[in-house]
Simulated assay, not measured.
Amino acid sequence: MPEAESVLVKDPLGWLTETFAQRLSEALELTTGEAPQVVWRLEDSTQPAEELLWREHKCSWGLQASFWVGASKLTVGEIGKHVLRAAGIETAEDVEIETSYLEVLGQAFSSLAQELGARLGVEVVLEESQWVSGPGEKAHLAVLELTLGAGPPQTLWLAAGLESLEAIQATREPDQAAQQATKQSLDEVPAGALAESRRQSPSVDRICRKTLELLMEVEMPVSISFGRTQLPLRDLLKLNTGSIIELDRTVNEPVEVIVNNCVIARGEVVVVEGNYGVRIHEIISREDRLRTLR
């Protein structure tokens, strides 16, 4: 990394990496019930020596930005299996393991976007993620080491573009000024009054509830599955108006309610004011939901 850039990048990349490490740890604790040990460091090399699977996470706040996470195939598998084992699933297909890994990353980046928005003072919109060959040419790197249970540390690489880091860097001075003003104000408050103020400050539970209330406003796409089947290509080419496709479900079997490619409930089809609806008969357990990931 050029010396002129290192002065600019060091603080924002450190903040970004530390925040992502915290949010990743929280996401893993939420899905497995166990918080991993996470340590991180900034990396001077432009590219890691080993071959990695890179996932690009895009977000925007007036600026189109990308952040990348790289991991070896072994690390992707270990994290995915760790999540599934916590749900009681010892044997899983590769797609289920990969999906579990991506869900953890998605949760971490969703929380990171909120932190970034609070720092920038704007709304940060998290967009789609995708597999890519590697981070951008001007990306700066950090390394995270995760220890899951009694297993060996798993290495993740975090990369961010220079333009994104410059935007984060630009917020540092106002933050420092605010911290200094807060410190001066606290110095002028009598010790007894300060203790009383701390006693009456919002609890962690109350803050968590407010965060949860915000998440409750997020709209999720819901779809209903009547059944599935597989057809040879020759039969697909023969389909025409009036053709009938037989599904793998009888008329008496319940339909599936699907959210984010995961079956969360089953029920029966009803009609509500001229529109189709579903009356829920069964809520799927967390373990079964993980098994239905596709």
Rank of each mutant, 00 (worst) to 15 (best):
Leu247Tyr: 05
Glu253Asp: 14
Asn261Val: 00
Ile244Gln: 13
Ile244Val: 15
Ala265Ile: 04
Asn240Asp: 13
Val271Tyr: 02
Leu293Ile: 11
Gly242Gln: 08
Ala265Thr: 05
Glu282Gly: 00
Ile280His: 01
Arg266Asn: 05
Leu290Met: 08
Val271Gln: 12
Glu268Thr: 13
Ile258Lys: 06
Glu256Val: 04
Val251Tyr: 01
Glu287Pro: 01
Thr292Cys: 03
Ile245Glu: 11
Glu268Ile: 12
Glu253Leu: 10
Arg286Trp: 00
His281Cys: 03
Glu268Leu: 10
Arg249Phe: 01
Ile284Glu: 11
Ser285Glu: 07
Asp288Lys: 15
Ile258Trp: 06
Asn261Gln: 12
Ile264Glu: 03
Val272Gln: 13
Arg289Ala: 07
Asn252Ile: 04
Asn240His: 14
Ile258Thr: 07
Glu282Thr: 13
Arg291Tyr: 03
Ile244Asp: 06
Val259Asn: 04
Gly267Tyr: 08
Val251Ser: 14
Tyr276Lys: 13
Thr292Asn: 04
Glu246Asp: 03
Leu293Thr: 13
Asp288Phe: 02
Thr241His: 08
Glu273Gln: 15
Val263Ser: 04
Asp248Arg: 13
Asn260Tyr: 01
Ile280Thr: 03
Val255Phe: 06
Glu256Gly: 03
Val259Met: 11
Val278Lys: 12
Ile283Glu: 09
Arg249Ser: 09
Ile280Pro: 01
Ile244Phe: 02
His281Pro: 02
Ile284Phe: 00
Glu253Cys: 05
Glu273Trp: 01
Ala265Lys: 07
Arg279Asp: 10
Thr292Pro: 04
Val255Pro: 00
Ile245Ala: 12
Leu247Pro: 06
Thr292Ala: 06
Arg289Asp: 02
Val257Ser: 00
Cys262Trp: 01
Asn261His: 11
Ile258Pro: 04
Val272Ala: 11
Glu246Lys: 14
Gly267Arg: 12
Asp248Glu: 10
Val278Tyr: 07
Val257Lys: 02
Asn252Pro: 03
Glu246Ala: 06
Glu268Met: 10
Ile280Arg: 04
Val263Arg: 10
Glu268His: 10
Ser243Gly: 05
Glu268Phe: 09
Asn261Tyr: 04
Leu239Ala: 07
Val278Trp: 06
Pro254Thr: 09
Ser243Gln: 07
Leu247Met: 13
Arg249Met: 06
Ser285Thr: 14
Gly242Lys: 12
Arg291Asp: 05
Thr292Val: 05
Leu239Asp: 07
Val259His: 03
Ile284Ser: 05
Ile280Gly: 02
Arg289Asn: 08
Val269His: 07
Gly242His: 09
Val259Phe: 07
Asn260Ser: 13
Arg279Glu: 14
Pro254Ala: 05
Asn275Gly: 00
Val263Gly: 00
Gly277Gln: 11
Thr250Tyr: 00
Gly267Ser: 09
Thr292Tyr: 04
Ile280Asn: 02
Leu239Arg: 09
Val255Cys: 07
Leu239Ile: 09
Gly274Gln: 13
Asn275Leu: 05
Ile280Asp: 03
